[in-house]
Structures are given as C-alpha cells and as structure tokens.
C-alpha cells in the first residue's frame, strides 16, 4: 500500500540525510525504522507525511504519488502537540472539522472511549499528564480513520511504565480496527520495535540507508521477557552495532 522508491534527501546546507531508500509496506503491516539518532529515520517519516520533499525518488500511496499531507495518512509526533487552547474533545476533533457535526461528535466520543479519556473530554491540555496527553494525540490521529499511521518516536518521552502500557494499547487498537491500518513507526527503542513490528528496518546513518530488514515472526502478544524475544533483541542490537563499530 505504501511504496518508497530510491528516496534521497539532501538538505539546503548540503547535508545528505538519506540515500536510496527503497521500502514497500503491505496493507495492515507494522514496520519499524530503527537506527541511531541522526540516521535520518525521522526525516524519512516526515517525507512520507508530506511535511518534507524528497530530493530524489518518490513515495507512492496505493499507487498514487504522495507529495503533500494526505487525508489517509495520520501522524503521531514525539510530543503530543495539542493545541493548548482547545479542550481534549476539541483537540481530538481538530482534524475532522470538515465532517458533519453529528459525525464529528460520534467519532470523537468513540475514540475518546477507546483511549480511555471520556472523563477528561472537557479538560485542557495543561491539566493532563504526559501519558494522557499522548493518548489524546493518538485519539486525534485515529479519529480521522487513517489507512496509514506514521509514528515518530511516539512514546520516547514517557516513563517506562506508561510507555509499555501505551505500546500494548496501540497494538490493541491496531488489532481491533477494520480495515486494519498500516503502521510505520520510528524509534530508537529496540524493545518497542520488537513488541510492535512485523518487520524491523535497521538504518545506518551519514547518509541514512537501509542496512537490514528483519522479519519478526514471533507470535503476538509478545512477552518482553521470553528467550526468543531476547534473542531477537540481540540480533537487532547486532545489526545496529555494525555501524557503531564502523564509526
């Protein structure tokens, strides 16, 4: 459903962030990009989101070229990025204001229920904890019912406990939603990648390019403590390691 072909990105200053990235995502798949910071993984995600233009190559969504933000593509950022002047409910509605009011209301209510924030619908962002704020951000993306959801280190600013809970929560939502959305996630947290993904794409930096693609065939739900999981973790770490040695 999403095809990246020969994506390259050179910034105005001459810095080459990405070189020749080719990646194909199946509908309903969860793919994670992992790599050290500065390897260009966030830039790649921003290109798919239509927030940056690639210098070379192109992005196809269902066969159509994607050059600007697209209604079928949702984005969840590292920070919640809520509008501080809007209530939780109005923040969630932010992206579907073009729909009829009744449709907005029912979708918003359903999504708030889904992320467990119904009781906080009228609260302002400043009254929320970090984990709650990020759940609002997730709700805001889900309410538009995107076919492709992009997540840029969505849980990296949260404490480990909240993080684990939200990862499980995201998986539940993904499994319950029909048609199943496709998820493209950026993280530097190997465990997060392994808990969530069908495939883990290991990027190396300067310029960013794909080093390895690992298909994680562990059955879900995955337990972070089981030996197979730990073995996978070692393999991903090794794949990341080769670069660190190279630097």
């Amino acid at each position: 459903m999403l095809q990246l072909s020969h994506i390259g990105k050179q910034f105005d200053g001459g810095l080459v962030a990405l070189a020749n990235i080719c990646l194909h995502l199946q509908a309903g798949e969860i793919v994670t990009l992992v790599g050290a910071s500065g390897c260009g993984k966030s830039t790649l995600l921003r290109i798919v989101a239509g927030l940056e233009r690639p210098s070379t190559g192109r992005v196809l969504l269902e066969g159509e070229p994607l050059t600007a933000p697209h209604p079928a593509v949702g984005v969840i950022f590292q920070e919640p990025r809520l509008m501080p002047w809007l209530t939780v409910r109005d923040n969630v509605r932010f992206g579907i204001m073009h729909l009829p009011a009744a449709e907005q209301a029912s979708r918003t209510a359903a999504v708030l229920e889904r992320v467990g924030l119904t009781a906080f619908a009228e609260a302002l962002p400043r009254q929320l904890s970090g984990g709650m704020a990020q759940r609002v951000a997730i709700a805001r993306a889900l309410v538009a019912q995107p076919a492709l959801l992009l997540l840029d280190e969505p849980f990296s600013a949260l404490d480990p406990f909240t993080k684990t809970k939200l990862q499980d929560h995201l998986l539940d939502i993904w499994a319950d939603t029909r048609p199943t959305p496709t998820l493209l996630l950026v993280t530097h947290d190997v465990e997060e990648a392994l808990v969530l993904s069908d495939r883990v794409v290991v990027l190396h930096g300067h310029p960013g390019r794909i080093n390895q693609t690992l298909t994680i065939d562990l059955p879900r739900p995955r337990r972070r403590t089981c030996p197979e999981f730990q073995a996978w973790k070692q393999r991903v770490l090794d794949a990341l390691e080769t670069e660190v040695v190279g630097v």
């Binding site: 009781a119 906080f120 619908a121 009228e122 609260a123 400043r126 009254q127 929320l128 904890s129 970090g130 984990g131 709650m132 704020a133 600013a157 949260l158 404490d159 406990f161 909240t162």
Partner: peptide
C-alpha cells in the same frame, strides 16, 4: 502512574468535566 511529564496535578475526572 503519575509520570514524569505531569505539568499540573491531573484533576479527578468529575472536576475536569
């Protein structure tokens, strides 16, 4: 459960609604 990003004490639901 109160995590590190808490800016203010989260209100109990009743008071927030």
């Amino acid at each position: 459960m109160a995590d590190s990003l808490t800016l203010t004490t989260p209100l109990p639901p009743a008071q927030a609604t």
